[in-house]
Measured scan of single mutants.
Amino acid sequence: LSCHYCHSLFSGKPEVLDWQDQVFQFCCRDCCEDFKRLR
C-alpha cells in the first residue's frame, strides 16, 4: 500500500479516513491529520 499523503509504501495497518464519500489510506496518524488540515 502507499500513503495518500506522503506516497511512501507501508505494509502495516493503515490509518483510514472516510471523507466526502471517498476512503483514503495513510501510513500514520500524522499524515492523516496533515491531510485533514489541508482540506
Rank of each mutant, 00 (worst) to 15 (best):
16 V>A: 07
18 D>L: 10
16 V>C: 09
15 E>H: 08
33 E>K: 03
2 S>V: 12
1 L>S: 04
32 C>F: 04
13 K>M: 02
7 H>R: 10
17 L>V: 08
29 R>P: 11
17 L>E: 05
38 L>I: 11
38 L>R: 11
29 R>A: 11
35 F>C: 02
36 K>P: 01
33 E>Q: 08
8 S>L: 10
1 L>G: 08
24 F>D: 03
28 C>P: 01
35 F>N: 00
38 L>T: 14
22 Q>N: 14
12 G>Y: 01
1 L>I: 15
26 F>R: 02
15 E>W: 08
23 V>I: 13
28 C>F: 01
14 P>L: 02
19 W>H: 12
16 V>Q: 09
36 K>G: 08
9 L>C: 05
24 F>K: 11
5 Y>F: 12
9 L>G: 12
19 W>N: 13
9 L>A: 11
7 H>P: 03
22 Q>L: 11
4 H>K: 13
6 C>H: 01
18 D>V: 07
9 L>I: 03
17 L>A: 08
36 K>C: 04
26 F>I: 01
1 L>A: 09
32 C>A: 08
5 Y>W: 12
26 F>N: 03
39 R>G: 15
2 S>G: 13
27 C>V: 01
23 V>L: 13
12 G>M: 05
9 L>M: 06
34 D>P: 03
13 K>C: 06
24 F>H: 11
22 Q>G: 14
15 E>T: 11
21 D>W: 04
27 C>E: 01
14 P>M: 05
10 F>Q: 01
10 F>T: 05
11 S>L: 03
11 S>G: 05
14 P>C: 02
25 Q>W: 10
25 Q>P: 07
12 G>R: 05
21 D>N: 10
19 W>M: 15
9 L>R: 09
31 C>D: 02
21 D>V: 03
32 C>G: 04
31 C>I: 00
1 L>E: 11
37 R>D: 04
31 C>G: 01
24 F>A: 09
30 D>Q: 08
14 P>K: 01
20 Q>D: 15
20 Q>P: 13
16 V>P: 06
36 K>T: 09
29 R>M: 14
30 D>C: 09
25 Q>K: 12
18 D>K: 08
30 D>N: 07
19 W>C: 14
31 C>P: 00
20 Q>A: 14
31 C>E: 02
5 Y>M: 15
35 F>I: 01
23 V>N: 13
3 C>Q: 00
3 C>L: 00
3 C>Y: 00
30 D>E: 09
30 D>W: 04
3 C>A: 00
29 R>Y: 14
31 C>R: 00
7 H>D: 14
34 D>K: 09
25 Q>N: 14
22 Q>S: 14
8 S>V: 15
35 F>D: 02
21 D>S: 07
17 L>D: 03
24 F>W: 10
21 D>M: 11
35 F>W: 06
26 F>Q: 02
20 Q>S: 14
8 S>W: 09
15 E>N: 09
33 E>D: 11
4 H>L: 08
33 E>I: 04
19 W>Y: 14
15 E>V: 10
12 G>Q: 09
26 F>S: 02
16 V>G: 04
11 S>F: 03
15 E>I: 11
26 F>L: 03
32 C>H: 06
23 V>S: 14
26 F>W: 02
15 E>P: 01
28 C>L: 01
30 D>K: 12
13 K>L: 08
32 C>T: 06
5 Y>K: 15
5 Y>R: 13
14 P>Q: 03
27 C>D: 03
8 S>I: 15
11 S>C: 02
7 H>Q: 06
9 L>H: 11
5 Y>A: 14
10 F>P: 08
24 F>P: 03
28 C>M: 12
6 C>K: 01
27 C>F: 02
2 S>N: 15
3 C>I: 00
19 W>Q: 14
10 F>C: 05
22 Q>W: 08
2 S>F: 12
25 Q>Y: 10
19 W>F: 15
18 D>R: 13
29 R>K: 09
2 S>C: 13
29 R>F: 12
22 Q>C: 12
28 C>V: 03
16 V>T: 08
23 V>T: 13
